[in-house]
Design a protein around this nucleic acid. Structure first.
Length: 477
RNA sequence: CGGGCGGUAGCUCAGGUUGGUAGAGCGCUCGGUUUGGGACCGAGAGGUUCGCAGGUUCAAAUCCUGUCCGCCCGACCA
């Protein structure tokens, strides 16, 4: 019908992912830029999305015995520097407070880039006996890292995240914790957010500053770059020695404990946006969509049947889903575009024709499919439809990732695949740090995670030395 | 941090080279008609004067210098 575009649309996702991404973030009203460089404002719709994601993680943390707590934003420099590798890793991106109350501070205070230092310090006071262990605490908070290049959600100076910090009597128990939490990250990413990820250990170069081992989940973005969507770290006794976290064990000996930390940030929202969005805008996974269903009434002048029917429908559906009845003055077409941009999974159109036929028109955001559904059946079908959308989104993303993951064994094949920058390249690798740096210099790709041990006799796809592992390589965000 | 581009109404942008005192479309407000894919008509408001600070000039949105912010590429980065 009316094809003239009154409102500027966003560029096609495939043409310019960066611009598309920025436009979707802004026009879906998730975030806005602020007068502070690199710091975004989370608007109500974006914050609602974050709260729903938080709830999915938080529920699982609690179910595995963790409690939430809160620690200071400011960390005295003397505490931060106690773990040498840790401070070296974070030093370039720490912001410092040097004045307070109009006076120069005697010791400058770091704005936390992460809280190992302050939490470790507190733990040393709280733990004396093996009976005090394990300590299973999580903190939801903001942190700050002085990044040079920033983008909404993916890399901002200040960001919201969660950091779990646990203490254990044995290395084995700590290792188990690290895997348990990594699995929760995978579960939320895949089963809730429909975001397929690979799970594995990080290389020496890529691991967390001060960690004995780092594990991560990595998602693949449409431009072939990998996005680290969650990390879980084994610290061994590195931090317990630095922060003096000791306990008297059953054998009456004083021992250093084993600690872990694990974190997920709002960066995962950036992953969702890029993985699922399309040329019309955002496509949200139903489980975390602030509005799972939007009802758009089509009211002709003089009609008195549509609005009451729409309100009844809203009340009925609200028992099982988050429903919004959009009764604003704008035209129906305007609302369709608006809610498509904002990623609402299901739209229900109800007009005089529907009312007359005792049905509604249901439109799926992921497929843009329109179906007439009898009014009497819609309430029962919404939950199933939402689940079907999640499954369909996951399958589409999985298929895409599978098509962009290749195995390479020989040097030329490996280098060419990485230079195409088209996705994950799985290859046998020697696990040497120098080799990884060489690969990066030539292809700008790095290891994302180590999938497992190499087959006996395999050689490194890049340098030809004996392979120790099989690793996923890609460029990264 | 290096290279490139940009900043003028809420938004998208024109004006700039040839300095002369700021415009369009959309949005917004009011009234009316409308409403099945971003409706239409009429009236109206809206810029401390063009990111900010200096400079040149009788005169700067326009020229010069610096600076801040944003975007892209690169470097860097759990």
């Amino acid at each position: 019908m009316e094809q003239k575009k009154q409102v500027k649309s966003i560029p096609p996702k495939a043409d310019d992912l960066s611009e598309w991404y920025t436009q979707v973030c802004l026009r879906a009203q998730l975030v806005d830029y602020t007068p502070v460089r690199g710091c975004i404002a989370l608007r109500p719709y974006g914050f609602a999305l974050w709260e729903l994601i938080q709830a999915e993680f938080d529920r699982r943390f609690k179910a595995t015995g963790h409690s939430n707590a809160y620690f200071p934003l400011l960390i005295p420099e003397s505490l931060l520097v106690k773990e040498a590798e840790h401070v070296e890793g974070f030093a370039p991106e720490v912001a410092w407070v040097t004045q307070g109350g109009g006076e120069e501070l005697t010791e400058r205070l770091a704005i936390r880039p992460t809280s190992e230092a302050i939490i470790g310090t507190m733990y040393s006071r709280w733990i004396q006996s093996h009976r005090d262990l394990p300590v299973l605490i999580n903190q939801w908070c903001n942190v700050m890292r002085w990044e040079k290049a920033t983008r909404p959600f993916l890399r901002t100076l200040e960001f919201l995240w969660q950091e779990g910090h646990t203490v254990h009597a044995s290395e084995a128990e700590a290792a188990e914790e690290v895997q348990r939490m990594l699995e929760i990250y995978r579960e939320v990413a895949e089963d809730v957010l429909a975001l397929p990820v690979i799970k594995g250990r990080k290389s020496e170069n890529e691991k967390f500053a001060g960690a004995a081992a780092t594990y991560a989940i990595e998602a693949l973005m449409p431009d072939g770059k990998a996005l680290q969507a969650g990390t879980s770290h084994e610290f061994g006794q590195n931090f317990s020695k630095a922060y003096d976290i000791t306990f008297t064990d059953v054998d009456e000996k004083v021992k250093h404990a084993y600690t872990t930390s694990w974190g997920v940030s709002w960066r995962i929202i950036g992953g969702l946006i890029m993985a699922h969005g399309d040329d019309r805008g955002l496509v949200l996974p139903p489980a975390v969509a602030p509005h799972q269903v939007v009802i758009v009434p089509i009211v002709k002048t003089g009609d008195e049947t549509v609005m009451p029917a729409a309100r009844r429908l809203r009340d009925e559906l609200s028992e099982t889903a988050r429903v919004l009845l959009d009764d604003r003055e704008q035209s129906p077409g305007w609302k369709y575009s608006e809610w498509e941009m904002r990623g609402v999974p299901l739209r229900i159109e109800i007009g005089p024709r529907d009312v007359a036929q005792n049905s509604v028109t249901v439109v799926r955001r992921d497929l843009q499919s329109k179906t007439a559904v009898p009014l009497g059946e819609i309430a029962a079908r919404v939950p199933a439809l939402l689940e079907e959308i999640r499954r369909s989104m996951y399958e589409r993303a999985s298929a895409w990732r599978a098509a962009h993951t290749i195995e390479a064994a020989g040097h030329d094949e490996f280098v060419e695949a990485l230079k195409r920058q088209d996705g994950f390249v799985l290859a046998p690798w020697c696990e040497r740090a120098e080799c990884e740096l060489d690969i990066k210099a030539e292809t700008s790709a790095v290891t994302r995670v180590i999938a497992g041990p190499a087959q006996p006799g395999q050689t490194c796809a890049y340098c030809g030395k004996p392979a120790r592992v099989t690793a996923y390589f890609a460029r990264s965000y």
